[in-house]
Design a protein around this nucleic acid. Structure first.
Lengths: 337, 337
DNA sequence: ATTAATTGTGCAAACGCTTACATGGCATCA
DNA sequence: TGATGCCATGTAAGCGTTTGCACAATTAAT
């Protein structure tokens, strides 16, 4: 059917072994032969059979992506599709294929990962769902299969990951607010067990301190989750304070809850910021000032990290790649601050 | 490394051929042997090596998905991610893997398709980008590789495809408007060369006629594209008519343009409907009455169609599957109508 | 001038699975 | 009882690549 390595070999007048070596840029092949073989390949439109090469023990040049199946979140937040696009940009430029699957729950995620690995289809995996105590990470570590996490892992030293610099991001937000003249800035975050909450809160505290403000604990609210309800609750709490003029949140959903409460109390004068640049914040009135996490970049970097890892594994050049990247966020000023 | 068919055969006390036959449910294997083999498989946690099975000439059980890389559209419209999820629901239940790629332009789409096919990775393809004169469709036909189109093809008789019943959908919208008391309903559509425009316009006309209204041509506007600008222009044109009380559009973007013009002219009394249920329409004020195209379902059906096709091809049971599915749309009433 | 090391290439086995063909056992029929 | 046919399973070749090993040709070292 399709063109095989044999036909290329025949046309180039060499053995299949040589063709294979040319494909992989083996260093013991003379430049002249390389040229001849390459000409033959392009003349025939040869594309290696991925199944065969994978079977013969090579990097299948395919990356598996595991997504959480959270319809609500998927819909509200362009994060996933953008991350997938980012991954594809880099992976495709390196000739990698991409496999994806949505999973209903953690168990299914693990099942899919097992399938990916055992089936021999993929050479590495990117996880897009960072949970607190991630069994997928555990599993992948236990079988020591190459993977990259989008999000911050529990063990940042021994895991490959990409994430935003959450400290820096919130630091920026608070400085922006102070620059705009706000002084008494409250904080509404998600559960304190999440690393992301901690990092953003630290950024908030640091920024305040550096500018000469020292928020008491009552100005910091941490909800049980990242929901609107928690935001609403947080606003309720913070409104008991005197002179509050701004609320920085760690998530758009929280921010929406905050806005709702503020609206109810006719305190629209209070500034609000969110996080994640969800679509609702873009189109609602007033537009929500928020932070874009640059999902595209996160995806691209994740792919880069993984592919580096894979290629480095194959070759014996010991170029030590970093084990993580921090991707810049971008403040999106809109009406609420 | 992983468990192979040999180990299963050894444990079950049969040959590898028998194991293979059990996997594929060959009918000449006795029930008792089947049971023994299945037990062995599950005991060892055996998962067939996809590369090997694909190489040996079997259906690789992998579907390639080609997406357009249109950042703006991707962001505004949850269509793509939902369709991908829909595909994954069905495909995963049938044990199929999914490959995806975003392409920058038509040429790249074709390149990716070639890669998919020549590499032997995929057994079938789903196209999510239906254009007017689709070279991908042409190419796939020319090499007669199994594929399904999401959207209406040029040759609906000899292509596998899924789509909404666009006629029906717009018919419904217009009836809804008439039921709500609107009488002089204008139409703003995209370019008339698109089949979807034609179908929806026909639905509009038919519904009007059936209820005793006979819109003159001046009540029908067809833009050069599906943009807000075209919508704006359309509204401008229609506003010259007397007594207009509603505008049905074929796309949310068009609707947004229409709303803008109406707002400018303080004619918010005029009802407006969109199409596609984009996120902006959900969150803006006033909320846009629109039609959800059920992207999930479209994806699921597309996967179903393709997998049926593939399995039917393999086995010689000649169950003739339909060559297309029409997926129901859903009217989403909100503020603008 | 001999030997040793290096370079460029080919040979052939191996990867894990499928499947056409072969085979032995059993039931059926005359 | 022997021939016939079917049923359940085994044998082995082959799918397209990769790669360790072998080997011839060249270069370097003595």
């Amino acid at each position: 059917m399709a063109v095989t390595i044999k036909e290329v070999a025949l046309l180039a007048g060499v053995s299949t072994a040589t063709v294979s070596r040319v494909i992989h840029n083996h260093d013991r092949i003379s430049d002249s032969t390389k040229q001849v073989v390459r000409d033959a390949m392009s003349q025939l439109g040869y594309i290696p059979n991925a199944a065969a090469s994978s079977l013969a023990g090579k990097n299948p040049k395919t990356i598996g992506i595991v997504l959480p199946n959270n319809p609500g979140e998927l819909f509200k937040n362009p994060f996933f599709i953008n991350a997938m696009r980012g991954i594809s940009v880099y992976a495709q430029s390196k000739g990698y294929f991409l496999l994806y699957s949505f999973s209903r729950d953690e168990q299914e995620e693990i099942d899919f990962i097992q399938n990916y690995i055992r089936s021999g289809w993929v050479s590495g995996i990117i996880l897009l769902a960072s949970r607190e105590h991630d069994r997928c990470v555990e599993y992948l570590n236990s079988v020591s299969f190459p993977f990259v996490l989008i999000g911050r892992p529990e063990d940042p030293q021994h895991t490959y990951w990409v994430d935003n610099d959450n400290f820096q991001a919130m630091y920026q937000v608070v400085n922006y607010l102070i620059d705009k003249g706000y002084r008494k800035i409250g904080f509404v975050g998600g559960p304190p067990t999440f690393r992301v909450t901690y990092d953003r809160m630290t950024g908030y505290r640091q920024a305040m301190n550096n500018r000469g403000f020292f928020p008491e604990d009552s100005m910091v609210f941490q909800g049980d989750d990242f929901s609107e309800e928690s935001g609403y609750l947080g606003a309720e709490r913070l409104l008991t304070l005197n002179g509050l003029d701004a609320i920085a949140t760690t998530d758009d959903q929280l921010a929406f809850g905050v806005l709702e409460k503020l609206h109810k109390e006719h305190r629209e004068d209070i500034a609000v910021t969110g996080f994640n640049n969800t679509v609702r914040g873009t189109y609602q009135h007033p537009g929500l000032t928020t932070v874009d996490v640059n999902a595209d970049q996160l995806g691209e970097r994740a792919a880069q990290l993984l592919i580096n890892l894979l290629e480095q594994q194959t070759s014996n050049h010991q170029i030590i790649t970093p084990n993580h990247y921090l991707v810049e966020t971008q403040l999106i000023p809109r009406d609420t601050a």
